[in-house]
Structures are given as C-alpha cells and as structure tokens.
Design a protein around this nucleic acid. Structure first.
Lengths: 141, 141
DNA sequence: TACATACCTGACTAAAATGGTCAAGTTTAG
DNA sequence: CTAAACTTGACCATTTTAGTCAGGTATGTA
C-alpha cells in the first residue's frame, strides 16, 4: 500500500488553491510559502495534476494554477490517482511464481486485501475537495 | 501508511497455522514450504508474534508453534500491531517545525488522516483470524 | 521589445524502508 | 548424543521516497 507525503502534499496544495482561486490564479510560490512545501516538489505534483485535468495552468506574469473542476467533483480518489498514489494494499500479482496469480490458486489472504482495498477506496470516493474545505472552515472558527 | 509483505506474510502464516494446529505444533519449516515464505523471514515474524502472545512455541524435535488464543480472539489489528505494521497514514507529528504538530496549528488535512485511520482500523478490528479461515474454506469448495 | 515571473522538464541523489540472508547459537525429544 | 526445531542479532542489496538542481519555455506588463 502506498499513501505517502506526495499524496498528502497534493491534497494540502489543492485545498489551499481552492481557498484562494476565486479572484486570481494562484502561484506555486504562494502555496509553497503558505504550506511549507518545496517549490520544486510542488511543480512535479502539479504537473501530474494538470495531466489529469484537475487543475489548469495560466502562464506568464500573474499566472498560476486554477481548479479545472468544481471542488465537489474532485474526489480524493482522483487526486491520489493523479499523483500515482496507488491504493493497492498488496501486490500478489507480481508473485505469480509463488502461487498467487489472482486466478486459480489465490493466496490465502487474497480476498482480504481485495476487501480492504474496496473499503479504503469507498472512503476516498465519497470524499471531495469541497468536503475538506468545509471541514477546514469549521475547524478554524 | 505501512501495510506491506511482512503483515501479509504474518496473516498468511497464521491462517496456515490455524488450519493445522489441531493435532501437533506446526513447524515454521512446513509453513515456509506451504506458503513459499523464506524460513529466516518467518522466524523474525514469529518471534514478534510470540512476544505479543499470539502464538506459543514448543521447542525440540516435533516442536513448532501453536496459537495462543482462540482464532476468534485474534483480530487483524493484533497481528499487524505485533509485526510493527503501523496503520499510520501520515506522520504530521515529525514535522513540528513545519506547522503541523497536532496541536494548535494542524495542517489543513490533519482531520482527514485521522478519519482515514479510524476507518481502516475499524475494518481490522472487526476481522478475526476465524473469519479468514472461514472465508478460505468457502473459496476452496 | 525586454524582462521578470511563472510554468515546465528531466536528471540526479541522500536517506529510509523493505525484504530479506547469514551466522551462531540454545533447547529438547527420541 | 544428535538432529530437528526454536532464538537472536547482525548484516545487506534493492527499491522507494522525498526531495534538489539545472536548465529550459511561455507570456503579461512596463
């Protein structure tokens, strides 16, 4: 299972972006400063978010990034998928030599991981960027 | 978040053990052969399982390991905890310099990870070794 | 048209985690 | 007394992570 800082940074950056993009595009520099994430690293992350059409970029002076969808339509699944955080608990499939190829001779625990994956993915599919923004508003009252 | 082969191996080995320990203790050698897990690695894992009182060891010829509890009382939580698979999604606390110390200035996504952790842990707390054994019987009919 | 600001790309890397192996025991049934 | 089995701890190759660095390219504004 992979669920690391990259995914977390992506979410943090997008929540930040969502809060400020009403008026102008938001520069990575600003996000970098506000969220304490390395600018270079942010660029890698946003490159992927852009490819997945989660954000749009606006070049030039006063440029930056803008959300490409309604915050309610951006689910966490989409974000993690974009930055290659695979919510794969365990890869049995690589180990075809060893008896678990997902077909006839599943390893004893195969079903378990399938179940878990579904369990986690459901969580992410039901959580949108908008939910996070709201959560955050509440917390900072 | 950590959820890797070690945890999977632990579960596989215990399911295997549970199926064969009615009569005699089960040697790691047998488990190693049946589940294709390195014997040396199994030893590391069982050392931890023993410390956590999930299994008992019986030394000498014809020795081996036996479950120390009813399969129904061994929850997945216990197993993962024993082998140091921490279901910690993201450690914000290490980064106290950077604004998220879990106290006053939580990082924007802090609540999210807390929620996720609870979500996953609930899954593991409700799943016992016995459930897995039953699942497995069904699948192999 | 210059130039600063911002995006864009790819190569590189230190440190940590992973998934083990290896060596050297100790214990006990037969 | 010896082989089978547990026990302990050091060691290590590979992969992943979380970035850095070095160069670009595009474009709004003065």
């Amino acid at each position: 299972m992979k669920l690391t800082s990259k995914g977390r940074y992506a979410v943090m950056a997008l929540v930040d972006l969502a809060r400020f993009d009403n008026i102008n595009p938001v520069s990575l520099r600003d996000i970098s400063l506000r969220q304490s994430i390395s600018l270079d690293y942010l660029e890698q992350i946003f490159s992927k978010l852009k490819k997945n059409e989660i954000v749009k970029s606006i070049r030039g002076t006063q440029g930056g990034y803008v959300l490409n969808k309604n915050p309610n339509d951006i689910k966490l699944t989409n974000i993690f998928h974009a930055v290659d955080e695979k919510v794969k608990t365990v890869q049995c499939k690589k180990e075809s030599k060893r008896g678990c190829n997902g077909k006839a001779t599943k390893c004893i625990t195969h079903n378990l991981w399938d179940e878990l994956e579904i369990h986690i993915n459901t969580f992410f599919e039901n959580k949108s960027l908008e939910d996070l923004i709201n959560d955050n508003k509440e917390t900072r009252v």
